[in-house]
Computed example of a mutant assay.
Amino acid sequence: MLTSMPIPFLDVRGLADSLRAELDGCWQAVLTHGRFIGGPETEAFELRFAEFCDSAHCVGVANGTDALELVLVALGIGPGDEVIVPANTFVATAEAVCAAGARPRFVDVRPDTLEIDPDAVAAAVGPRTAALMAVHMFGQMTDVDRLAPLAQRHGIALIEDAAQAHGARFGSRRAGSVGIAAGFSFYPGKNLGALGDGGAVVTHDAALADRIRVAANHGRVAGGHHVHKVRGRNSRLDTLQAAVLTAKLAHLDRDNERRRVLMDRYRQRLPDGCTPLAQHPRAESVHHLAMVQVTDRAAAVAALDAERIGWGVHYPVPCHQQPAFADFADGPLPVAERAADTILSLPMSPTLSIDQVDRVCDVLARAGLP
């Protein structure tokens, strides 16, 4: 008979329970004033999140995918343009490029961090390259010290996909402060997660922020509810989610530090055959995911399942091998393809205990990984 308590892969419920009084207050405040779209909490969150990201402007939108697409469209990137994208990313990065009418140009990643490879980016730049998606994977910012000068040298836009990197740093720079703009997701499982979908664009460029705000609100000009300046769309961060995000933002640095403590413990206790991804010496990760590479994933997950320990794979099929993007596959990308067979995501939440991390490691040690 199983006696050990299960360990969730992601403890969304536990994190919400720890903030129950604050979240109840958000609900009551929004119910009281009744401005469920465009209420005062939305602007307040935008101001706070821009400051948190060391950026000047924030525009709340409906989700992280919309955030990236709105940036591309506002920059005038579309049909005939190419956007460089790492093969190892969630498909939303490529979806946004396609939705804008541009072509994703997939490139390989580094074998140690599984972040986009700057050398591969340099080799992929061509006459149609309009932008580079600097995707900050698993909570670690990619090597912006190399990517930013490369983008500037070639005259292409550097766009940060920071959906997994709320609060991460590279040197002194926060995620969201490096590129022309950055897209964030507030999907519930993110480091800063809403109670539903949500997203944001942050940028230093006031004119770009204004164009995105207009486009995301049906093309309406400021102060003109019935005047539609451009053909826009409906992509707004609603008031309740903004209120929740503001409450959670106050605890984000603390929660991210807890994730670093937990990941350090994983590094100390994980057995041979289970290797954490490397961290760039200038990067301060927020460990959205506890990523490892294993010598026998089937044995590892069987052992975890037997002990009711949650796990994930991010991602088992690289973007260039997905049927939806087969038209854009330019050839093999061996690092991303090899990693797809070995990567494993272990439990990671600010509510996780050291004892639970130790249990995960002990279970993997008994799995007999070669």
Rank of each mutant, 00 (worst) to 15 (best):
L132T: 06
M133G: 02
M133H: 05
A134P: 10
V135E: 01
V135P: 04
M137L: 15
M137Q: 14
M137A: 14
Q140T: 10
T142K: 02
D143C: 11
V144N: 01
V144S: 06
D145L: 06
A148D: 02
A148Q: 09
A148N: 03
P149T: 12
P149H: 03
Q152Y: 06
H154W: 07
I156C: 06
A157T: 09
L158H: 05
I159R: 00
I159S: 11
D161Q: 03
D161H: 06
A163M: 04
A163N: 00
Q164M: 14
Q164P: 05
H166E: 15
G167W: 02
A168F: 00
F170A: 08
F170H: 13
F170T: 11
S172L: 02
R173L: 13
R173T: 07
S177A: 13
V178K: 04
V178D: 06
V178H: 09
I180V: 15
I180Y: 06
I180G: 03
I180T: 13
A181R: 01
G183I: 08
G183D: 03
F184N: 04
F184E: 00
F184R: 07
S185E: 10
Y187S: 14
K190Q: 14
N191I: 01
A194R: 08
A194C: 13
G198S: 02
V201W: 00
V201K: 09
T203H: 04
H204C: 02
D205Q: 02
A206C: 12
A206M: 10
A207G: 05
L208D: 03
R211H: 12
I212T: 09
I212K: 04
R213M: 10
R213L: 12
V214I: 15
G219V: 11
R220E: 04
R220M: 00
V221T: 14
V221R: 15
V221Y: 13
A222P: 02
G223S: 12
G224Q: 11
G224R: 11
G224T: 06
H225R: 13
H226W: 07
H226R: 11
K229Q: 09
R231A: 15
N234Q: 13
S235I: 05
R236W: 06
R236G: 10
D238S: 04
T239Q: 07
T239F: 03
L240H: 10
Q241C: 01
A242Q: 04
L245V: 12
T246I: 04
K248E: 01
L249K: 11
A250T: 12
D253W: 04
